[in-house]
């Protein structure tokens, strides 16, 4: 180690056994821990990427050999069902984001700005229904959407998704509006603005950063969602996550194609991680 030349961190206490043994060793240890953390969290994704670049004959020995190819991506993108599933996932995620945010922004505003029996009832309802396991209502939703004639269509997946988001997002939206000082809205109302005007022209613009964060997360949640897509869609509306899971069960051996599909579907997640980081971190804070 060349740590001898590094300045030791200013000692606040008498140097312990460890510092006496290796000056600067704590920093080294810290650095090593950080590298290990990065490796642990990035490795599965890197491994998947590597697998997706291997030709079919070499995929079982990913760690050996240096044949790399883009043929897997080409083959996957040639499959009609994958293309269709990508488009469907994209459309559903986008529509669900717009609808969910539209529905929950007013609900969160109401929870944040008012007190009394109505907000209290609504809040407890949201809390209870947030706890109900998805499987308890997605099984009967299968029959409800069939009865409504929207099973295996966009609407049949979209509306349940909005219902999924109602509870959680109202809660987060309430947090966003709690962080915005309501005095501006009172001022606007004294100046003759209606309640709707105060909400729309004063509170909404202030909530835009929070809304952006939530929009990104909502889009990704829907893009990544599996259970609802599995039960509420069939051949007419294939969804990407379901198509991938079927790859595992039906063509269990074609790991190179599966990885390529998975890498393609990771695209948006990677983009968001790199470019939308600050928004996402804001949105995740409960």
């Amino acid at each position: 180690m060349t740590t001898a030349s590094l300045p030791a961190p200013a000692p606040r206490r008498a140097p312990g056994f460890f510092e006496a043994l290796a000056p600067g060793g704590r920093r080294m240890l810290f650095l090593l821990a950080m590298v290990a953390v990065c490796l642990l969290f990035a490795f599965p994704v890197l491994w998947l990427g590597l697998t997706s670049l291997r030709p079919g004959y070499a995929v079982f020995y990913v760690h050996r050999g240096t044949d790399f190819t883009l043929e897997n991506f080409h083959e996957v993108l040639g499959q009609q069902v994958v293309l269709k599933a990508m488009w469907n996932s994209f459309a559903i995620s986008t529509l669900a984001t717009i609808l969910s945010l539209g529905v929950t922004v007013t609900s969160g505003y109401m929870l944040s700005r008012f007190k009394g029996p109505i907000p209290n009832t609504w809040f407890s309802l949201i809390y209870v229904f947030r706890c109900v396991p998805y499987v308890s209502w997605v099984l009967p939703l299968y029959f409800v959407t069939r009865a409504l004639g929207i099973f295996d269509t966009y609407w049949g997946l979209l509306l349940p998704h909005v219902a999924v988001h109602v509870c959680f997002f109202s809660w987060i939206m309430k947090g966003f509006f709690d962080g915005i000082d309501p005095s501006m809205e009172y001022a606007a109302m004294i100046d003759g603005c209606s309640r709707w005007g105060a909400f729309w022209r004063v509170a909404m613009p202030a909530a835009i950063p929070g809304l952006t964060a939530l929009a990104i997360l909502c889009w990704l949640y829907t893009w990544n969602e599996f259970l609802f897509a599995l039960i509420l869609t069939a051949h007419e509306t294939p969804i990407l996550t379901v198509v991938m899971a079927q790859f595992v069960h039906e063509l269990g051996m074609e790991w190179h194609l599966m990885s390529a599909t998975a890498v393609l579907s990771l695209g948006p997640a990677l983009l968001v991680t790199v470019f939308g980081q600050k928004y996402v971190i804001r949105g995740l804070k409960v």
Partner: peptide, 11 residues
């Protein structure tokens, strides 16, 4: 460490 939060559980 943000990466796993964005990855679909299925993937």
């Amino acid at each position: 460490i943000l990466l796993p939060l964005m990855v679909a559980p299925v993937i």
